[in-house]
Design a protein around this nucleic acid. Structure first.
Lengths: 230, 230
DNA sequence: CCATAGTGATTCGTATACGATTTCGTACTC
DNA sequence: GAGTACGAAATCGTATACGAATCACTATGG
């Protein structure tokens, strides 16, 4: 369950490795999301090509795709870098995600069964325990698992894809906000439970959407309040 | 004003033509949006390369970017085609756009000045006149102009980019729904005026967002109702 | 001592070339 | 006559090669 379906809309999801271009895409994307390539990292085409045992052409294509997804910044005759998240970018990404994820969750809600709720609740309990000997990385990962359960049923693949992209952007800063705003984690767990209750009781879509959106906005606000004091 | 800033996030907006890859991207995208390449059209790399006087490598990159934007479908060893809009895709795209555009409009609203309102209202009046000797293409274009005024001030570039992408997808079917659901056009104009009133009077963000979203959903619903009778 | 021009190294951008895969037509067999 | 196997043409996928742009460093002149 930890693995989030990477289902990036266009990628060939089948078992075969696929073209070199596809391999390069997956490989570089993985390294970015998992944190091997940190924000600002200079992506030298020739080097990546060598590492993967391919030529530069497929790598260029892969980079272009990642660029279109916003994971990479590509400047003419300069090169590609992992698009870092300066605070402004973080704000934009979180705001966008709040909207898109809110919608996805609301659309998903009617399709969420009792089993899903149970899974989500279990994850949330793990998070609650995790609050003691606080481990931001683990907490962030659980957080993603939790929300995945809520929005993965979204019947609109476009919206789902946007949500995934948002999470991917955020994945760059592994331990996320929770490292910086520990107080937020506690509220977060409570809001999760409230969200589950809403879904369980079949609250109307608008209510759920607002709750989901606010949940994320609150995280953003907490970050901003914290950032102000630096 | 007819020209919508194509500002596709990553494209180099400067005056210079840019790299061949960029040229190819712009050229193919333009042909798709303007309707030269209709949905389902087979994009043969070699042919496009020849047309543009470049080799296939830059064209491949361009196609890859368009793929990530959803304008093109690219299958391994098969080739690229302009991603048509089967009714399901249309539904997904419209739903996504309703959410994203609603948010963009709401975020934009506080930044919309009297001059903008006046411009939008003028466009809407043109649309109203256009209702007599109905010209779907012209109407659709005006419709885009109108909404552009409303959401272009959106301070979050990510959301704005998503809105642009949505409109681009839709642009494939030039004359849009209005050709199929003529009755809808009339309501649309009225809703536009209502939307302007809300913005003028400084209605709260939530109200504006809902109105904008509903305005689009209504168009979608009209289409669906119509489609059922075929 | 600072500013600037020159030079070399690095890396990107694109063309060309060739192997791999799919598609479609044709002929052959049952 | 229908179905299948074979082969040619079209198209994609990737490697290699070379020209072009950028950057860092040094040397020279003020």
């Amino acid at each position: 369950m930890t693995e989030m379906a990477t289902a990036a809309g266009t990628s060939s999801g089948n078992g075969t490795v696929g073209s070199k271009s596809e391999q390069a895409y997956q490989a570089v994307k993985a390294r970015i999301v998992e944190g091997t390539y940190t924000p600002g990292y200079r992506l030298v085409l020739a080097k990546i090509a060598e590492d993967l045992g391919v030529s530069v052409v497929p790598v260029r294509e892969a980079i272009r795709r990642l660029e279109a997804e916003g994971l990479v910044k590509f400047e003419r005759n300069i090169g590609a870098t992992v698009s870092g998240i300066d605070p402004t970018e973080y704000l934009y990404t979180m705001q966008t995600l709040s909207i898109v994820e809110g919608a996805a969750t609301a659309l998903s809600a009617p399709l969420i069964g009792a089993a899903d709720i149970a899974r989500a609740r279990a994850v949330n309990e793990e998070m609650r325990e995790c609050l003691q000997h606080f481990d931001p990385i683990r907490f962030t990962r659980l957080n993603q698992d939790f929300h995945s359960v809520l929005f993965e049923h979204c019947p609109n693949p476009h919206i789902l894809d946007l949500v995934h992209r948002g999470w991917n952007r955020l994945a760059s800063l592994r331990s996320s906000v929770f490292r910086f705003v520990p107080g937020r984690a506690h509220n977060s767990v409570d809001e999760h439970e409230a969200l589950l209750r809403l879904i369980e009781t079949g609250a109307d879509a608008d209510t759920i959407e607002k709750a989901a959106r606010l949940h994320r906005s609150a995280t953003l606000d907490a970050y901003l309040a914290q950032a102000k004091n630096l």
